[in-house]
Nucleic acid binder design. Structure first.
Lengths: 218, 218
DNA sequence: GCGTTTATTGACCAACGGGTCAATTTACTG
DNA sequence: CAGTAAATTGACCCGTTGGTCAATAAACGC
Protein backbone atom coordinates (compact mmCIF):
# COMPACT_ATOMS: atom_id res chain seq x y z
CA UNK A 1 0.00 0.00 0.00
CA UNK A 2 1.46 3.35 -1.03
CA UNK A 3 2.29 5.87 1.65
CA UNK A 4 0.27 8.43 -0.25
CA UNK A 5 -2.88 6.34 -0.14
CA UNK A 6 -2.35 5.58 3.52
CA UNK A 7 -2.05 9.24 4.29
CA UNK A 8 -5.34 9.94 2.53
CA UNK A 9 -7.02 7.16 4.45
CA UNK A 10 -5.69 8.39 7.79
CA UNK A 11 -6.84 11.92 7.08
CA UNK A 12 -10.29 10.66 6.17
CA UNK A 13 -10.50 8.54 9.28
CA UNK A 14 -9.43 11.45 11.45
CA UNK A 15 -12.00 13.71 9.81
CA UNK A 16 -14.63 11.08 10.54
CA UNK A 17 -13.49 10.81 14.15
CA UNK A 18 -13.57 14.57 14.55
CA UNK A 19 -17.06 14.69 13.09
CA UNK A 20 -18.21 11.93 15.41
CA UNK A 21 -16.80 13.75 18.40
CA UNK A 22 -18.45 16.94 17.25
CA UNK A 23 -21.78 15.18 16.99
CA UNK A 24 -21.49 13.60 20.41
CA UNK A 25 -19.72 16.25 22.45
CA UNK A 26 -20.18 19.49 20.54
CA UNK A 27 -17.54 22.04 19.76
CA UNK A 28 -16.45 22.67 23.33
CA UNK A 29 -16.16 18.97 24.08
CA UNK A 30 -14.18 18.18 20.95
CA UNK A 31 -10.54 18.20 21.97
CA UNK A 32 -7.56 16.80 20.13
CA UNK A 33 -7.25 14.14 22.81
CA UNK A 34 -10.83 13.01 22.30
CA UNK A 35 -10.53 12.89 18.54
CA UNK A 36 -7.33 10.90 18.92
CA UNK A 37 -9.07 8.47 21.23
CA UNK A 38 -12.03 8.14 18.88
CA UNK A 39 -9.63 7.38 16.03
CA UNK A 40 -7.51 5.08 18.15
CA UNK A 41 -4.28 7.00 17.67
CA UNK A 42 -2.21 9.38 19.75
CA UNK A 43 -2.82 13.06 19.99
CA UNK A 44 0.51 13.78 18.35
CA UNK A 45 -0.54 11.69 15.37
CA UNK A 46 -3.58 13.85 14.85
CA UNK A 47 -1.37 16.92 14.76
CA UNK A 48 0.87 15.11 12.30
CA UNK A 49 -1.92 14.94 9.74
CA UNK A 50 -3.53 18.27 10.55
CA UNK A 51 -1.22 21.09 11.44
CA UNK A 52 -3.85 22.77 13.57
CA UNK A 53 -7.16 22.03 15.21
CA UNK A 54 -8.87 24.42 12.82
CA UNK A 55 -7.66 22.37 9.89
CA UNK A 56 -9.01 19.25 11.52
CA UNK A 57 -12.42 20.77 12.16
CA UNK A 58 -12.52 22.08 8.63
CA UNK A 59 -11.95 18.55 7.39
CA UNK A 60 -14.69 17.37 9.76
CA UNK A 61 -17.05 19.94 8.29
CA UNK A 62 -16.25 18.84 4.77
CA UNK A 63 -16.63 15.21 5.77
CA UNK A 64 -20.00 15.72 7.41
CA UNK A 65 -21.25 17.63 4.44
CA UNK A 66 -19.94 15.15 1.93
CA UNK A 67 -22.31 12.52 3.32
CA UNK A 68 -25.29 14.75 2.75
CA UNK A 69 -23.96 15.86 -0.61
CA UNK A 70 -23.55 12.25 -1.74
CA UNK A 71 -27.07 11.53 -0.58
CA UNK A 72 -28.46 14.39 -2.61
CA UNK A 73 -26.33 13.51 -5.61
CA UNK A 74 -27.45 9.89 -5.55
CA UNK A 75 -31.12 10.84 -5.47
CA UNK A 76 -30.62 13.58 -8.06
CA UNK A 77 -29.21 11.00 -10.45
CA UNK A 78 -32.33 8.94 -9.98
CA UNK A 79 -34.65 11.89 -10.52
CA UNK A 80 -36.05 12.29 -14.02
CA UNK A 81 -38.11 15.44 -13.88
CA UNK A 82 -38.36 18.71 -11.93
CA UNK A 83 -40.68 17.43 -9.24
CA UNK A 84 -38.50 14.43 -8.61
CA UNK A 85 -35.47 16.69 -8.31
CA UNK A 86 -37.23 18.82 -5.71
CA UNK A 87 -38.21 15.78 -3.70
CA UNK A 88 -34.70 14.40 -4.11
CA UNK A 89 -33.35 17.38 -2.17
CA UNK A 90 -36.05 17.15 0.47
CA UNK A 91 -35.80 13.39 0.97
CA UNK A 92 -32.01 13.48 1.08
CA UNK A 93 -32.17 16.06 3.84
CA UNK A 94 -34.60 13.86 5.77
CA UNK A 95 -32.91 10.53 5.12
CA UNK A 96 -32.40 8.53 8.31
CA UNK A 97 -28.70 8.53 7.62
CA UNK A 98 -28.44 12.28 8.02
CA UNK A 99 -31.53 13.53 9.83
CA UNK A 100 -30.51 12.52 13.34
CA UNK A 101 -29.96 14.60 16.48
CA UNK A 102 -26.20 13.92 16.76
CA UNK A 103 -25.55 14.76 13.12
CA UNK A 104 -27.71 17.84 13.35
CA UNK A 105 -25.96 18.83 16.53
CA UNK A 106 -22.56 18.65 14.86
CA UNK A 107 -23.87 20.76 12.04
CA UNK A 108 -25.23 23.43 14.38
CA UNK A 109 -22.03 23.45 16.40
CA UNK A 110 -20.05 24.25 13.29
CA UNK A 111 -22.60 26.82 12.16
CA UNK A 112 -22.10 28.60 15.45
CA UNK A 113 -18.39 28.82 14.68
CA UNK A 114 -18.87 30.18 11.17
CA UNK A 115 -18.74 33.88 12.07
CA UNK A 116 -15.31 33.40 13.62
CA UNK A 117 -13.62 31.48 10.83
CA UNK A 118 -13.54 32.72 7.24
CA UNK A 119 -12.72 29.23 5.99
CA UNK A 120 -15.83 27.74 7.56
CA UNK A 121 -17.77 30.61 6.10
CA UNK A 122 -16.52 29.83 2.61
CA UNK A 123 -17.49 26.19 2.96
CA UNK A 124 -20.94 27.13 4.23
CA UNK A 125 -21.37 29.46 1.30
CA UNK A 126 -20.59 26.66 -1.12
CA UNK A 127 -22.99 24.28 0.60
CA UNK A 128 -25.71 26.91 0.54
CA UNK A 129 -25.12 27.71 -3.12
CA UNK A 130 -25.31 24.06 -4.09
CA UNK A 131 -28.58 23.42 -2.28
CA UNK A 132 -29.97 26.59 -3.75
CA UNK A 133 -28.93 25.55 -7.23
CA UNK A 134 -30.44 22.10 -6.79
CA UNK A 135 -33.76 23.62 -5.89
CA UNK A 136 -34.03 26.69 -8.06
CA UNK A 137 -33.45 24.74 -11.26
CA UNK A 138 -36.46 22.44 -11.05
CA UNK A 139 -38.59 25.19 -9.51
CA UNK A 140 -37.92 27.43 -12.49
CA UNK A 141 -39.30 24.69 -14.67
CA UNK A 142 -42.49 24.74 -12.66
CA UNK A 143 -43.06 28.44 -12.07
CA UNK A 144 -41.88 31.92 -12.86
CA UNK A 145 -38.37 32.95 -11.78
CA UNK A 146 -39.47 35.13 -8.86
CA UNK A 147 -41.60 32.36 -7.40
CA UNK A 148 -38.78 29.88 -7.90
CA UNK A 149 -36.36 32.10 -6.01
CA UNK A 150 -38.74 32.72 -3.14
CA UNK A 151 -39.79 29.09 -2.83
CA UNK A 152 -36.15 28.03 -2.88
CA UNK A 153 -35.30 30.38 -0.05
CA UNK A 154 -38.31 29.21 1.94
CA UNK A 155 -37.52 25.52 1.45
CA UNK A 156 -33.97 26.16 2.63
CA UNK A 157 -35.29 27.98 5.68
CA UNK A 158 -37.52 25.05 6.54
CA UNK A 159 -34.60 22.66 6.06
CA UNK A 160 -32.48 24.72 8.45
CA UNK A 161 -35.39 25.08 10.86
CA UNK A 162 -36.20 21.39 11.12
CA UNK A 163 -32.51 20.54 11.40
CA UNK A 164 -32.09 23.00 14.21
CA UNK A 165 -35.12 21.58 15.97
CA UNK A 166 -33.78 18.09 15.35
CA UNK A 167 -30.48 19.02 16.98
CA UNK A 168 -32.26 20.27 20.08
CA UNK A 169 -34.26 17.06 20.38
CA UNK A 170 -37.11 19.10 21.83
CA UNK A 171 -40.46 17.67 20.96
CA UNK A 172 -38.33 15.38 18.81
CA UNK A 173 -38.77 16.64 15.29
CA UNK A 174 -39.38 13.54 13.20
CA UNK A 175 -38.94 13.09 9.47
CA UNK A 176 -42.70 12.68 8.86
CA UNK A 177 -43.43 15.90 10.70
CA UNK A 178 -40.78 17.67 8.68
CA UNK A 179 -42.14 16.19 5.46
CA UNK A 180 -45.58 17.57 6.27
CA UNK A 181 -44.06 21.04 6.60
CA UNK A 182 -42.46 20.81 3.18
CA UNK A 183 -45.75 19.68 1.67
CA UNK A 184 -47.52 22.57 3.30
CA UNK A 185 -44.96 25.01 1.95
CA UNK A 186 -45.13 23.63 -1.58
CA UNK A 187 -48.91 23.84 -1.44
CA UNK A 188 -48.51 27.61 -1.34
CA UNK A 189 -47.81 27.76 -5.07
CA UNK A 190 -48.36 24.30 -6.51
CA UNK A 191 -51.43 22.09 -6.60
CA UNK A 192 -50.95 18.52 -5.49
CA UNK A 193 -50.90 17.36 -9.09
CA UNK A 194 -50.52 13.72 -10.16
CA UNK A 195 -46.96 14.50 -11.27
CA UNK A 196 -46.12 15.90 -7.86
CA UNK A 197 -47.71 12.97 -6.07
CA UNK A 198 -45.90 10.49 -8.27
CA UNK A 199 -42.59 12.25 -7.74
CA UNK A 200 -43.09 12.34 -3.99
CA UNK A 201 -43.78 8.62 -3.90
CA UNK A 202 -40.94 7.83 -6.28
CA UNK A 203 -38.30 9.74 -4.34
CA UNK A 204 -39.48 8.44 -0.96
CA UNK A 205 -39.21 4.94 -2.36
CA UNK A 206 -35.82 5.66 -3.94
CA UNK A 207 -34.57 6.94 -0.61
CA UNK A 208 -35.93 3.87 1.16
CA UNK A 209 -34.23 1.58 -1.31
CA UNK A 210 -30.93 3.40 -0.96
CA UNK A 211 -31.12 3.16 2.80
CA UNK A 212 -32.11 -0.49 2.81
CA UNK A 213 -29.30 -1.35 0.43
CA UNK A 214 -26.90 0.08 2.97
CA UNK A 215 -28.54 -1.69 5.87
CA UNK A 216 -29.70 1.54 7.50
CA UNK A 217 -33.02 1.42 9.29
CA UNK A 218 -35.25 4.41 9.69
CA UNK B 1 -30.17 52.44 47.40
CA UNK B 2 -30.85 49.06 48.95
CA UNK B 3 -28.19 46.38 48.70
CA UNK B 4 -30.84 44.01 47.39
CA UNK B 5 -31.73 46.27 44.50
CA UNK B 6 -28.09 46.84 43.70
CA UNK B 7 -27.49 43.14 43.54
CA UNK B 8 -30.35 42.73 41.08
CA UNK B 9 -28.98 45.51 38.94
CA UNK B 10 -25.48 44.05 38.93
CA UNK B 11 -26.76 40.63 37.94
CA UNK B 12 -28.77 42.14 35.13
CA UNK B 13 -25.82 44.15 33.89
CA UNK B 14 -23.60 41.08 33.99
CA UNK B 15 -26.17 39.05 32.11
CA UNK B 16 -26.28 41.78 29.50
CA UNK B 17 -22.50 41.84 29.25
CA UNK B 18 -22.39 38.07 28.88
CA UNK B 19 -25.02 38.23 26.16
CA UNK B 20 -23.09 40.94 24.35
CA UNK B 21 -19.90 38.92 24.50
CA UNK B 22 -21.77 35.87 23.27
CA UNK B 23 -23.10 37.83 20.32
CA UNK B 24 -19.71 39.23 19.43
CA UNK B 25 -17.35 36.41 20.25
CA UNK B 26 -19.49 33.29 20.37
CA UNK B 27 -19.44 30.64 23.04
CA UNK B 28 -15.75 29.78 22.76
CA UNK B 29 -14.72 33.42 22.87
CA UNK B 30 -16.88 34.23 25.86
CA UNK B 31 -14.63 33.95 28.90
CA UNK B 32 -15.17 35.24 32.39
CA UNK B 33 -12.41 37.75 31.81
CA UNK B 34 -14.10 39.12 28.70
CA UNK B 35 -17.49 39.40 30.35
CA UNK B 36 -15.85 41.16 33.26
CA UNK B 37 -14.16 43.58 30.90
CA UNK B 38 -17.41 44.20 29.02
CA UNK B 39 -19.14 44.95 32.31
CA UNK B 40 -16.26 47.03 33.63
CA UNK B 41 -15.66 44.91 36.71
CA UNK B 42 -13.13 42.32 37.79
CA UNK B 43 -13.36 38.65 36.99
CA UNK B 44 -13.75 37.83 40.66
CA UNK B 45 -16.76 40.11 40.85
CA UNK B 46 -18.47 38.18 38.12
CA UNK B 47 -17.98 34.99 40.10
CA UNK B 48 -19.34 36.76 43.15
CA UNK B 49 -22.71 37.22 41.47
CA UNK B 50 -22.75 33.98 39.54
CA UNK B 51 -21.29 30.96 41.27
CA UNK B 52 -20.33 29.38 37.98
CA UNK B 53 -19.94 30.23 34.34
CA UNK B 54 -22.93 28.06 33.51
CA UNK B 55 -25.09 30.17 35.79
CA UNK B 56 -23.89 33.29 34.05
CA UNK B 57 -24.60 31.94 30.58
CA UNK B 58 -28.00 30.79 31.73
CA UNK B 59 -28.73 34.33 32.82
CA UNK B 60 -27.44 35.58 29.47
CA UNK B 61 -29.80 33.19 27.68
CA UNK B 62 -32.73 34.41 29.74
CA UNK B 63 -31.72 38.01 29.18
CA UNK B 64 -31.44 37.63 25.42
CA UNK B 65 -34.75 35.91 25.26
CA UNK B 66 -36.49 38.41 27.47
CA UNK B 67 -35.91 41.10 24.86
CA UNK B 68 -37.63 39.07 22.21
CA UNK B 69 -40.34 38.03 24.62
CA UNK B 70 -41.06 41.63 25.56
CA UNK B 71 -41.20 42.51 21.88
CA UNK B 72 -43.74 39.79 21.21
CA UNK B 73 -45.73 40.68 24.32
CA UNK B 74 -45.89 44.35 23.37
CA UNK B 75 -47.18 43.60 19.89
CA UNK B 76 -49.56 40.94 21.18
CA UNK B 77 -51.14 43.51 23.47
CA UNK B 78 -51.71 45.73 20.46
CA UNK B 79 -53.21 42.94 18.36
CA UNK B 80 -56.99 42.76 18.31
CA UNK B 81 -57.79 39.71 16.22
CA UNK B 82 -56.25 36.37 15.19
CA UNK B 83 -54.51 37.69 12.09
CA UNK B 84 -52.96 40.54 14.02
CA UNK B 85 -51.73 38.10 16.64
CA UNK B 86 -50.05 35.98 13.98
CA UNK B 87 -48.35 38.98 12.47
CA UNK B 88 -47.40 40.18 15.94
CA UNK B 89 -45.28 37.06 16.38
CA UNK B 90 -43.76 37.35 12.93
CA UNK B 91 -43.00 41.06 13.14
CA UNK B 92 -41.54 40.76 16.61
CA UNK B 93 -39.17 38.09 15.36
CA UNK B 94 -38.13 40.35 12.50
CA UNK B 95 -37.93 43.59 14.43
CA UNK B 96 -34.66 45.44 13.84
CA UNK B 97 -33.98 45.27 17.53
CA UNK B 98 -33.71 41.50 17.47
CA UNK B 99 -33.21 40.35 13.91
CA UNK B 100 -29.50 41.14 13.61
CA UNK B 101 -26.51 38.93 12.94
CA UNK B 102 -24.86 39.39 16.36
CA UNK B 103 -28.05 38.66 18.24
CA UNK B 104 -28.80 35.69 16.02
CA UNK B 105 -25.26 34.48 16.47
CA UNK B 106 -25.58 34.54 20.23
CA UNK B 107 -28.80 32.62 19.95
CA UNK B 108 -27.27 29.94 17.74
CA UNK B 109 -24.24 29.65 20.00
CA UNK B 110 -26.47 28.87 22.92
CA UNK B 111 -28.59 26.50 20.86
CA UNK B 112 -25.45 24.56 20.07
CA UNK B 113 -24.84 24.15 23.80
CA UNK B 114 -28.36 22.97 24.58
CA UNK B 115 -27.68 19.24 24.22
CA UNK B 116 -24.99 19.46 26.89
CA UNK B 117 -26.87 21.39 29.52
CA UNK B 118 -30.26 20.31 30.86
CA UNK B 119 -30.92 23.78 32.20
CA UNK B 120 -30.49 25.39 28.79
CA UNK B 121 -32.71 22.69 27.40
CA UNK B 122 -35.46 23.53 29.86
CA UNK B 123 -35.29 27.21 28.96
CA UNK B 124 -35.39 26.43 25.26
CA UNK B 125 -38.41 24.22 25.83
CA UNK B 126 -40.22 27.07 27.53
CA UNK B 127 -39.35 29.51 24.76
CA UNK B 128 -40.53 27.06 22.15
CA UNK B 129 -43.76 26.35 24.00
CA UNK B 130 -44.54 30.05 24.30
CA UNK B 131 -43.99 30.79 20.64
CA UNK B 132 -46.03 27.76 19.75
CA UNK B 133 -48.83 28.86 22.01
CA UNK B 134 -48.78 32.38 20.58
CA UNK B 135 -49.23 30.99 17.09
CA UNK B 136 -51.51 28.03 17.52
CA UNK B 137 -54.18 30.06 19.27
CA UNK B 138 -54.93 32.51 16.48
CA UNK B 139 -54.42 29.83 13.85
CA UNK B 140 -57.08 27.68 15.46
CA UNK B 141 -59.45 30.56 15.09
CA UNK B 142 -58.74 30.62 11.36
CA UNK B 143 -58.59 26.94 10.47
CA UNK B 144 -59.11 23.43 11.73
CA UNK B 145 -56.89 22.18 14.58
CA UNK B 146 -54.69 19.96 12.41
CA UNK B 147 -53.94 22.77 10.01
CA UNK B 148 -53.26 25.11 12.91
CA UNK B 149 -50.74 22.69 14.40
CA UNK B 150 -48.97 22.12 11.12
CA UNK B 151 -48.84 25.77 10.17
CA UNK B 152 -47.52 26.63 13.63
CA UNK B 153 -44.71 24.13 13.29
CA UNK B 154 -43.87 25.38 9.82
CA UNK B 155 -43.84 29.03 10.87
CA UNK B 156 -41.51 28.15 13.74
CA UNK B 157 -39.25 26.30 11.33
CA UNK B 158 -39.07 29.31 9.05
CA UNK B 159 -38.34 31.55 12.04
CA UNK B 160 -35.47 29.29 13.07
CA UNK B 161 -34.28 29.00 9.49
CA UNK B 162 -34.12 32.71 8.77
CA UNK B 163 -32.49 33.35 12.15
CA UNK B 164 -29.86 30.76 11.43
CA UNK B 165 -29.22 32.28 8.02
CA UNK B 166 -29.11 35.72 9.63
CA UNK B 167 -26.48 34.53 12.08
CA UNK B 168 -24.29 33.25 9.25
CA UNK B 169 -24.55 36.57 7.42
CA UNK B 170 -24.36 34.63 4.16
CA UNK B 171 -26.29 36.28 1.41
CA UNK B 172 -27.39 38.53 4.25
CA UNK B 173 -30.91 37.45 5.05
CA UNK B 174 -32.90 40.65 5.37
CA UNK B 175 -36.19 41.22 7.14
CA UNK B 176 -38.09 41.86 3.87
CA UNK B 177 -36.81 38.60 2.39
CA UNK B 178 -37.83 36.77 5.53
CA UNK B 179 -41.24 38.45 5.48
CA UNK B 180 -41.79 37.22 1.93
CA UNK B 181 -41.14 33.68 3.09
CA UNK B 182 -43.75 33.95 5.83
CA UNK B 183 -46.25 35.32 3.34
CA UNK B 184 -45.54 32.45 1.00
CA UNK B 185 -46.01 29.94 3.79
CA UNK B 186 -49.28 31.45 4.96
CA UNK B 187 -50.54 31.44 1.37
CA UNK B 188 -50.50 27.66 1.56
CA UNK B 189 -53.73 27.60 3.55
CA UNK B 190 -55.08 31.14 3.69
CA UNK B 191 -56.13 33.52 0.95
CA UNK B 192 -54.76 37.02 1.13
CA UNK B 193 -58.02 38.29 2.52
CA UNK B 194 -58.69 41.93 3.40
CA UNK B 195 -58.49 41.01 7.08
CA UNK B 196 -55.08 39.45 6.59
CA UNK B 197 -53.83 42.40 4.57
CA UNK B 198 -55.10 44.85 7.15
CA UNK B 199 -53.50 42.89 9.98
CA UNK B 200 -50.20 42.70 8.15
CA UNK B 201 -50.14 46.44 7.61
CA UNK B 202 -51.31 47.16 11.15
CA UNK B 203 -48.66 45.05 12.83
CA UNK B 204 -45.87 46.28 10.57
CA UNK B 205 -46.87 49.81 11.47
CA UNK B 206 -47.16 48.96 15.16
CA UNK B 207 -43.69 47.50 15.08
CA UNK B 208 -42.35 50.56 13.29
CA UNK B 209 -43.92 52.84 15.86
CA UNK B 210 -42.51 50.84 18.75
CA UNK B 211 -39.05 50.95 17.20
CA UNK B 212 -39.21 54.64 16.43
CA UNK B 213 -40.39 55.43 19.94
CA UNK B 214 -37.21 53.76 21.20
CA UNK B 215 -35.01 55.51 18.68
CA UNK B 216 -34.07 52.29 16.91
CA UNK B 217 -33.54 52.54 13.18
CA UNK B 218 -34.16 49.67 10.83
C1' DG C 1 21.24 -4.47 2.88
C1' DC C 2 21.38 0.63 3.42
C1' DG C 3 20.23 5.31 3.62
C1' DT C 4 16.30 8.23 3.57
C1' DT C 5 11.85 9.44 4.22
C1' DT C 6 7.59 8.97 6.73
C1' DA C 7 4.66 7.43 10.61
C1' DT C 8 3.91 7.35 15.42
C1' DT C 9 4.40 8.43 19.97
C1' DG C 10 5.50 9.93 24.85
C1' DA C 11 7.24 13.74 27.16
C1' DC C 12 7.03 18.30 27.61
C1' DC C 13 5.58 23.30 27.43
C1' DA C 14 3.32 27.70 27.59
C1' DA C 15 -1.10 29.81 27.63
C1' DC C 16 -5.42 30.08 29.30
C1' DG C 17 -9.65 29.11 31.64
C1' DG C 18 -12.60 28.54 35.57
C1' DG C 19 -12.66 28.87 40.22
C1' DT C 20 -10.89 29.90 45.30
C1' DC C 21 -9.33 32.93 48.97
C1' DA C 22 -8.01 36.26 51.95
C1' DA C 23 -7.83 41.06 52.36
C1' DT C 24 -9.54 45.61 51.80
C1' DT C 25 -13.11 48.80 51.05
C1' DT C 26 -17.79 50.21 51.13
C1' DA C 27 -22.47 50.47 52.80
C1' DC C 28 -26.09 49.47 56.00
C1' DT C 29 -27.82 48.94 61.15
C1' DG C 30 -28.42 49.81 65.88
C1' DC D 1 -19.82 55.81 66.04
C1' DA D 2 -19.18 50.90 66.19
C1' DG D 3 -19.96 46.63 64.33
C1' DT D 4 -21.38 43.73 60.88
C1' DA D 5 -22.59 42.25 56.40
C1' DA D 6 -21.83 42.71 51.67
C1' DA D 7 -19.04 44.21 47.69
C1' DT D 8 -14.89 44.22 45.17
C1' DT D 9 -10.54 42.86 43.85
C1' DG D 10 -5.64 41.06 43.07
C1' DA D 11 -3.13 37.11 43.69
C1' DC D 12 -3.05 32.53 43.32
C1' DC D 13 -4.20 27.57 42.09
C1' DC D 14 -4.83 23.75 39.19
C1' DG D 15 -6.59 21.21 35.41
C1' DT D 16 -6.90 21.35 30.52
C1' DT D 17 -5.60 22.25 25.77
C1' DG D 18 -3.43 23.21 21.61
C1' DG D 19 0.91 22.69 19.99
C1' DT D 20 6.26 21.35 19.84
C1' DC D 21 10.10 18.17 19.77
C1' DA D 22 13.15 14.64 19.73
C1' DA D 23 13.36 9.77 19.60
C1' DT D 24 11.99 5.47 17.75
C1' DA D 25 9.87 2.28 14.48
C1' DA D 26 8.38 1.21 10.01
C1' DA D 27 8.40 1.54 5.01
C1' DC D 28 10.27 2.81 0.84
C1' DG D 29 13.77 3.37 -3.15
C1' DC D 30 18.10 1.74 -4.88
Amino acid sequence: MGRRALSKIRRKELARAAHASLARHGMAGTTLARVAEEAGVSKASVLHYFRTKEDLLEAALRHGNSRLRDEVAALMRVARNPWERIYAVIEANLSPRAFRPPIAHGWISLSAAVPHNPQYQRIQTVIYARTRSNLVGPLRALSDPATAELMTAAVISVIDGVWLRCSLSLGGMSAPEARAQFELLLDARFPDSPERQAARAAMAEACRVLMASRGIES
